[in-house]
């Protein structure tokens, strides 16, 4: 059976709900128990961090723009690291060769003389 005016019916229900009072007392340590149940449920559904990380990573790499960016950044990192290492190696080799040349031409660099 449909109510004649749904707006009136809602208003009536709201008034009834406002007047409704629960007198029954809560069981002892009710709040503690609720929190414990929430904690237990959370612990049961907790996913390991690495799985979460992998899921996020997979989702990110599934997007072509992010995948291309990832590969490009790694490529540039490799190039930059190689370039910096070349500079260090060259500087060391230069210093070493310079010292060897000086030792070759300067007899006083030999401690026995």
């Amino acid at each position: 059976m449909k109510p004649e005016n749904p707006m009136q019916s809602d208003e009536g229900l709201r008034q009834v709900l406002h007047q409704w009072k629960v007198d029954a007392p809560l069981p002892p340590r009710f709040q503690d128990q609720v929190w414990r149940r929430i904690e237990r449920t959370e612990a049961e559904v907790q996913i390991p961090a690495w799985v979460l990380l992998w899921q996020r990573l997979s989702a990110a790499l599934a997007r072509p723009t992010l995948a291309v960016s990832y590969v490009t950044i790694l490529l540039l990192t490799g190039l930059l690291a190689g370039y910096l290492q070349v500079r260090v190696t060259r500087a060391q080799a230069d210093e070493n060769m310079g010292a060897r040349y000086v030792q070759l031409v300067d007899p006083f660099q030999n401690p026995h003389r």
Binding site: L57, L75, V86
Partner: peptide
Amino acid sequence: RRPILILVAGLALAVAAYCGVYYSGT
């Protein structure tokens, strides 16, 4: 398999770039 492939390809490319620059530079 695709994300693993992309991850490994990125790393391999970085190592190849490093080695290429290093060996040609030295």
